[in-house]
Nucleic acid binder design. Structure first.
Lengths: 135, 135
DNA sequence: ATTATATATCGTAATTAACGATATAATCAT
DNA sequence: ATGATTATATCGTTAATTACGATATATAAT
């Protein structure tokens, strides 16, 4: 089983290495984590970022300011508690996150076309199951 | 097909977000790319790094010095051309790369145990095929 | 009215990432 | 053998980044 898991990681890292987007954006690892946090979880405040990245609240606030300035995030205020900021990804922010974490759609399309119907079905189904179990 | 590809990326990013290693190392994106380049390709010189990262040769050399200092890389010299440095990952370097690009083995193990034999086989096989086509 | 909470801003320090200029050693061309 | 080229390293410098503590402001809770 251990060997199988190492093999899976071999496949996983090979796939990402080959299929990730080529054009690397000028964006820090911390910034990607913030965008991911907002997209993938229901955490969405400045305080949440501070906890998530384990930095102080002022640093989290600075990160947000920068990401808003770059047009990756925008803010709204909570109606139940107007001290709280609610952070949202902009269209550009979603795009940048995609470029930094997803597989290149055009490369992927070529490969998908080269697969048989069964191979394609098994791939989609296997990843679906893995993603569900992973949560 | 386009929808299927977006769905695949949804699965892909969900899986990585849930299953990546929790303990984030203090390492820059550029540094990860260098370690990856050395592990995944046959590029292994300082000059290769400069081209790969599109930085000047002196900057590449500085990166290498830092990564050697951290114990992630070590150098040897080419016997055919002694001007050339050949870079290798140390055990620690492999470990750091794993922590930054692979899925967490213990999380993965739990999931693998929860899958049926067929599910596990299909998953391994699908990723194998995808990794082969990706190259 | 007082205290606590969420966020923002300011001043500052440490680190990082990059470059051009320069140096050194090895190899190639003539 | 000599001069040119190549691969890497080092130095000095600059700009950007990342973090923090202290402080401020507005809102909410007691």
């Amino acid at each position: 089983m251990d060997k199988e898991i190492k093999l899976l990681n071999q496949y996983w890292t090979d796939i990402y290495f080959s299929l990730h987007y080529a054009h690397e954006e000028q964006i820090s690892h911390q910034a990607v984590r913030i965008l991911q946090m907002i997209e993938k979880t229901d955490l969405n405040s400045v305080g949440n970022i501070a906890e998530y990245l384990k930095v102080s609240h002022n640093t989290a606030s600075e990160h947000v300011k920068k990401l808003v300035g770059k047009g990756f995030l925008f803010k709204s205020r909570s109606d139940v508690d107007e001290r709280k900021v609610i952070l949202h990804l902009t269209k550009l922010g979603k795009e940048v996150l995609k470029k930094n974490t997803s597989l290149d759609e055009s490369k992927l399309e070529n490969i998908m076309h080269s697969l048989s119907d069964k191979e394609r079905f098994d791939l989609m189904n296997s990843l679906k199951i893995l993603s569900e179990r992973a949560k």
